[in-house]
């Protein structure tokens, strides 16, 4: 069964009386199956975090629907949300602001239990200790305050809090982007281990395609609130179908001086023209833009690859047959 089914979700923010509302998420659809990780990639302002918050009910949706385990939760009330919180949890980007500095780690971790399970004090303490142990934190963690921990440790604690109630779905909003490289790898491995053991589904939101590729089964690429491309993680990473995905991949410097030199010379400079409205949101930065791109918004169409879809007028033209691009190299713009 589909754990999460988002259909044509739109989120708007008011910008004062004289200006039209800002459409942060624009008719986005996505599905997450049980035990699956869906990677949501995009740059700042792409609406990826807003989408996560809308699913969690922290930001109201303007239109569209969110179904969770078969139930419509788009406009779930406070009581319904509280019931949902037993199985839908979140880990946020900033490990510094996501833990209340005035409460000990034990108090923070016990909170979900207080809401959903009425347990004896000793039992609560036991469960907190088990979970801290599970995420690799020492035994005395529960009595200490967040300020005594590093960013990576805090993120482990935040993951522990999300898992206290054995959720089915965890929305991970950039959980590793604030962490150092070696700590980032530790936390990514922890998330992967927990998924394998507990059968969790993740919506994994990040801006780094390499990070997302490693953890996700499928990837959705967002740009200015719209889905540009979706498909299996390995395919999106090795054979991107949308010029924006190509641009993202080409822009990320690879940790290899020679390869990076080759990529650099192949890369063309992007222009800084103002974005257009009405047509494809990426048209002003795209090297393949034709007139049609500026006037008509491309629909997200299946490409023939299993489970892949791309929103580009020129997809068929630019990717004539799979054979020509299947050599595993990243095609450069």
């Amino acid at each position: 069964m589909t754990t999460l089914d988002v259909r044509d979700l739109t989120v708007e923010f008011r910008q004062g009386r004289s200006r039209p509302p800002l459409r942060a998420v624009d008719a986005v659809s996505l599905q997450i199956g049980a035990g699956e990780t869906l990677g949501l990639v995009g740059e700042s302002g792409s609406g990826k975090s807003t989408l996560g918050r809308a699913i969690l009910g922290l930001t109201p949706a303007a239109s569209g629907s969110v179904h969770y385990e078969g139930k419509d939760i788009t406009r779930a009330g406070l009581r319904e949300r509280r019931a949902l919180s037993a199985t839908m949890q979140a880990v946020f980007q900033d490990p510094y602001s996501s833990l209340n500095p005035t409460r000990t780690i034990g108090q923070t971790l016990a909170e979900p239990l207080l809401v959903h399970r009425r347990l004896e004090r000793a039992e609560t303490v036991e469960q907190v200790r088990t979970m801290l142990d599970r995420v690799g934190m020492p035994g005395d963690t529960a009595e200490r305050y967040p300020s005594q921990f590093s960013g990576g440790q805090r993120q482990r604690i935040a993951i522990a809090r999300a898992l206290m109630l054995s959720p089915h779905l965890v929305i991970c909003d950039e959980p590793v982007s604030a962490l150092d490289l070696s700590i980032q790898a530790q936390v990514m491995n922890l998330l992967a281990d927990l998924q394998r053991e507990l059968g969790l589904s993740y919506l994994f939101i990040a801006h780094d395609l390499a990070v997302v590729r490693h953890l996700s089964h499928r990837i959705v690429v967002l740009y200015r609130g719209q889905v540009m491309e979706t498909g299996p993680a390995a395919r999106v990473y090795s054979r991107p179908g949308h010029p924006y995905t190509e641009a993202l991949l080409a822009a990320a410097p690879v940790p290899d001086p020679e390869q990076q030199r080759a990529r650099r010379t192949a890369r063309t400079a992007t222009t800084l023209a103002p974005p257009n409205t009405g047509g494809c949101p990426f048209a002003h930065r795209c090297p393949h833009t034709v007139d049609r791109c500026r006037t008509e918004r491309p629909a997200l169409r299946p490409t023939g690859d299993s489970g892949s879809a791309v929103a580009c007028h020129r997809f068929a033209e630019l990717h004539p047959s799979p054979a020509e691009t299947s050599n595993g190299k990243v095609p450069l713009v």
Binding site: L56, L78, R82, S85, A90, F92, Q93, L99, E111, V115
Partner: peptide, 12 residues
């Protein structure tokens, strides 16, 4: 964010 996290935890 910890207030958002508390809301997600189901606190009233």
């Amino acid at each position: 964010l910890y207030v958002a996290a508390a809301r997600v935890s189901g606190l009233s």
